[in-house]
Lab assay of single mutants.
Amino acid sequence: EVTIKANLIFANGSTQTAEFKGTFEKATSEAYAYADTLKKDNGEYTVDVADKGYTLNAKFAG
């Protein structure tokens, strides 16, 4: 089991951190699915991958 950390950075400057656990593939998929649920209210996002894929920095356009 691994933990994927998602740093969510919103256009207004606020941030949120979420963690997803499971296999690498499952946890990564859940992190992206969570970011997708936030698109409606926060706009499209881009992701910078860090820490060999164990940290995802998602920046929302607003």
Rank of each mutant, 00 (worst) to 15 (best):
N7R: 10
T3G: 03
A27Q: 01
T17H: 12
A11E: 08
K39C: 08
F10S: 03
A33I: 08
S14V: 14
S14F: 13
D48Q: 13
K21H: 14
D51C: 05
T17A: 08
N12H: 06
N42L: 09
F60L: 02
I4N: 01
Q16V: 14
V2L: 06
E25P: 06
T37Y: 12
S29H: 11
A35P: 01
L56Q: 03
S14W: 12
D51T: 00
V49S: 09
T28L: 14
Y45K: 01
N57Y: 11
Y45P: 03
K26C: 12
V47K: 03
A35N: 04
A18R: 15
N57F: 09
S29R: 14
T17Y: 13
A27G: 03
S14Y: 13
G22F: 02
D41N: 11
K52W: 13
G62Q: 08
A33T: 08
I4L: 05
A58L: 15
E30I: 05
A58M: 15
S14L: 13
A27K: 00
F24M: 10
A35C: 15
T23P: 10
A58Y: 15
E44C: 13
E30G: 05
F20D: 02
T37A: 14
N42K: 10
K26M: 13
K26L: 10
K39M: 11
A31H: 03
N7G: 01
K52G: 15
F60N: 03
T28R: 09
E44T: 10
T28Y: 12
D48P: 00
A50R: 12
V2I: 10
G53C: 05
N12D: 15
Y32I: 12
F20I: 02
T15G: 07
T46C: 13
K5P: 00
L8K: 00
Y32N: 03
L38E: 04
A6D: 03
D36V: 02
E30C: 12
T46Y: 10
V49K: 07
A18K: 15
E30D: 15
A31T: 01
A61N: 12
E1D: 11
A33P: 02
N7I: 14
V49F: 13
K40W: 11
T37H: 10
V2A: 07
D51M: 00
T55A: 04
G22W: 00
Y32G: 02
T46V: 12
F20P: 02
T3L: 09
V47G: 02
T28G: 01
D36I: 01
V49D: 04
N12I: 04
Q16P: 01
G53Y: 01
Y34I: 03
S29K: 15
Y34H: 07
Y32F: 11
G13I: 02
A18C: 15
V47T: 07
V49E: 07
Y45T: 01
N12W: 06
V2M: 04
A61K: 12
F10H: 03
T17K: 10
F10N: 02
A35R: 00
F10G: 02
T46W: 10
K5A: 05
G13Q: 06
I9F: 13
G43Y: 01
Y45H: 02
G53A: 01
A35D: 02
Y54C: 10
A31W: 05
S14H: 14
F10E: 01
G62F: 07
T37P: 00
F10C: 06
L56V: 09
F10I: 03
I4T: 00
A18M: 15
A58G: 04
A27R: 00
Y54I: 05
N42E: 12
Y45M: 04
T37G: 13
E1M: 14
T17G: 06
K59L: 11
I9W: 09
F20L: 02
A61C: 12
Y34P: 04
S14M: 14
L38D: 01
N12K: 04
D41K: 11
T17N: 07
